[in-house]
């Protein structure tokens, strides 16, 4: 195949890549541009992801002002750390949301009067192996809601307390007045069940 054809096909593949490849690529390009000091790139990333980041922070903090501050802090952290970003790792958005959650947990711990040791953004917990492409995540709101609804209310409760309220397993056990072992079982069982529901749904949508 002549080289120019290969290049054209490449261009097409990148222009309209399979699934959301393009969105991830764009985010990675924007991260690089941020690393090069381009403020516009930060603005563009903000346009893309502030909606989900703000909804997430608001769900955790139940306060629009605190949520906005957490989101701003997270975007600034992303800006400051753009140079350390490695495209082979987690997608920028997963990183951003992990940092948003860190900021929210810091805030919740302050509100609860717990010892305040800020979570380290450099170690923000994200998976290096993305199972589901970004395009699917963007459109999977109903799927995730359905998967959550399929959990038992006990499982959903511990997951929400752990994920959105940032409570440790012992704190959840104390709050619900159940043994720690029960919390662990509901948490792991609930996450596994969510995982298989999401896998199944993703496999169906991908075929």
């Amino acid at each position: 195949m002549p080289e120019f054809i290969g290049r054209a096909l490449n261009a097409i593949r990148m222009f309209v890549p399979n699934e959301l490849h393009g969105i991830v690529t764009d985010d990675i390009v924007l991260m690089r541009r941020m690393a090069a000091g381009e403020r516009n790139a930060l603005g563009m990333l903000y346009e893309r992801h502030a909606g989900v980041a703000f909804a997430f922070a608001r769900r955790m903090l139940a306060d629009a002002d605190d949520a906005e501050e957490a989101v701003q802090d997270a975007f600034l952290a992303l800006w400051r750390r753009a140079e350390t970003f490695r495209p082979g790792g987690a997608a920028p958005r997963a990183w951003l949301l992990a940092i948003v959650r860190n900021r929210c947990i810091d805030q919740l711990r302050r509100r609860r009067g717990e010892a305040n040791q800020s979570l380290d953004d450099a170690q923000a917990n994200v998976s290096a192996n993305e199972l589901w492409p970004e395009i699917w995540k963007r459109h999977c709101g109903d799927v995730v809601r359905a998967a959550l609804a399929a959990l038992s209310s006990e499982q959903r409760e511990v997951i929400e307390l752990g994920f959105y309220s940032g409570l440790s397993h012992s704190q959840i056990a104390a709050r619900l007045d159940v043994p720690l072992g029960t919390v662990k079982k509901r948490m792991r069982g609930g996450l596994k069940r969510l995982r298989s529901a999401l896998d199944e749904r993703y496999a169906r949508s991908a075929t």
């Binding site: 403020r39 930060l42 603005g43 903000y46 346009e47 502030a50 909606g51 989900v52 703000f54 909804a55 997430f56 608001r58 769900r59 629009a64 949520a67 906005e68 989101v71 701003q72 975007f75 600034l76 997963a94 949301l97 917990n125 994200v126 998976s127 290096a128 192996n129 993305e130 199972l131 589901w132 995540k137 963007r138 999977c140 709101g141 995730v144 809601r145 959550l148 997951i159 994920f163 996450l191 969510l194 995982r195 999401l198």
Partner: peptide
Amino acid sequence: DELRNVLDVLPFSLDEERPNVEARKRLLAR
């Protein structure tokens, strides 16, 4: 990774909400 991937998609169950329109300006000002 399996657990983390499940947690990563949880925020997508929320309806997106735009922050205050001034927030973007404030961010860039910061």
